[in-house]
Design a binder for these strands. Structure first.
Lengths: 153, 153
DNA sequence: ACCAATCGTAGGTGATAACCAACGAATGGA
DNA sequence: TCCATTCGTTGGTTATCACCTACGATTGGT
C-alpha cells in the first residue's frame, strides 16, 4: 500500500508560522524549478535586482544589501559573469574594488525571472476567491515594509 | 565603518515569493528561539500536534502525516520520549509497530508552544494597521486549505 | 615609510533538510 | 513452511545555509 499523502493535523495548520513556512517553501521550490530552466537561481535574481535598481555597484555593497557574506557572493558573481548577465571592472578610484554592472542579457534575464515569479504568484492565487486574493495583495504589499522583512531595526 | 544593514532593492521586494520567504524565515527563526527555551523544536511541536489531534498513532503514520522520512522521525521521537512529552508502546496487534501517545507533560508543552506561536503572531501583526491585520487573518485562514500548503493534489 | 583597514577571494566549519539502502524482527497470505 | 512485505532503525549521502579566518593587493592617514 502506498504511503498516504501528507495530512497535516488541524492544530498544526492553526499555527500561522507553520502555514507561512509551508507556502513560502513550496513557492520557493517552484520558483527554483522555473529559474533552473535558464540556469538561474534566486541569488542570481537578487543580485540582478540590486544592479537594476542601483546601477553599477561594488561587490561589498551588493553583499551588504542582500545580507549575505561577501565570501558567499563570489560564486554568485562568477556565475553571473560566466553567463554574461553581469560584467565587472576594477574601480579606477580604488583598485581593490570591483564594480558590477548588469548587461543587456542580464536585463532580459531579470525581466524573464520577474515574469516567472508573476506567473507563479498567479498560480498560487488560483485557489483563492476574490476577497482572499485581495487579502493576499494587501498583506504582501504591507509586508514589503515590515521590519521583519526589510531587516531594518 | 560597520557594514550597513540589509537594504533589499525595491524590485526584489516587488517579488511576493521573496517577501513570503523573508517573513516566513524570520518568523520561523524567532519561533525556534522561543521553543529552544524549553528544549523544543518545530518537529517536536509537529509530532505533538499529530498526537493531540489523532490520539495514539503509529510512527509510520506520524511520519506520513508530516511528510518526513521515517528514519528522520527516529531522533524526534527519541527526544520526545526522553523529555517525557510522549510515550510509546508496542502495538499488541502487531509487534513491529510502536504506538506513540502524548503525555500530560506533552499536552502542557504543546499548549505552551501554541501560546508562544500566538504571541509571535501578535508581534508580527504589530506593525500592521487594521485592514492589513484583517488581510493577514483572511489570507492565512485561506492558506490552511491551499493545495500548496496541505500537500494534497 | 609604515601600518591599520578595506576588498575580494579561497577554503573552512557546523547545522539543517531531505533523501536513500540495508538490516533484524515481525506479519500474514500462499 | 516459506517468503514478500512492513516497521523502525542505523548509518549514509547530497545540497543548502550561514557563518568564519586568513591571505594578497590596495588604500590613505600618520
Amino acid at each position: 500500500m502506498p504511503m498516504p499523502e501528507t495530512h497535516y493535523p488541524p492544530s498544526l495548520l492553526d499555527q500561522d508560522v507553520f502555514v507561512l513556512s509551508r507556502i513560502a517553501l513550496t513557492a520557493r521550490r517552484r520558483l527554483a524549478e522555473r529559474l533552473a530552466e535558464r540556469d538561474m537561481n534566486r541569488w542570481d535574481v537578487a543580485v540582478l535586482a540590486v544592479l537594476t535598481d542601483r546601477g553599477p555597484t561594488v561587490q561589498r555593497s551588493i553583499a551588504a544589501a542582500l545580507g549575505i557574506d561577501p565570501s558567499d557572493l563570489v560564486d554568485i558573481v562568477d556565475h553571473l559573469l560566466s553567463a554574461g548577465l553581469a560584467a565587472r571592472d576594477r574601480d579606477p578610484a580604488d583598485r581593490r574594488r570591483y564594480i558590477l554592472r548588469i548587461t543587456s542579457e542580464g536585463r532580459e534575464a531579470f525581466a524573464w525571472a520577474r515574469k516567472e515569479e508573476q506567473a507563479l504568484r498567479e498560480a498560487l492565487l488560483t485557489p483563492l476567491n476574490a476577497p482572499q486574493r485581495e487579502a493576499w495583495h494587501t498583506l504582501l504589499t504591507a509586508l514589503r515594509t515590515h521590519p521583519e522583512v526589510t531587516g531594518q531595526r
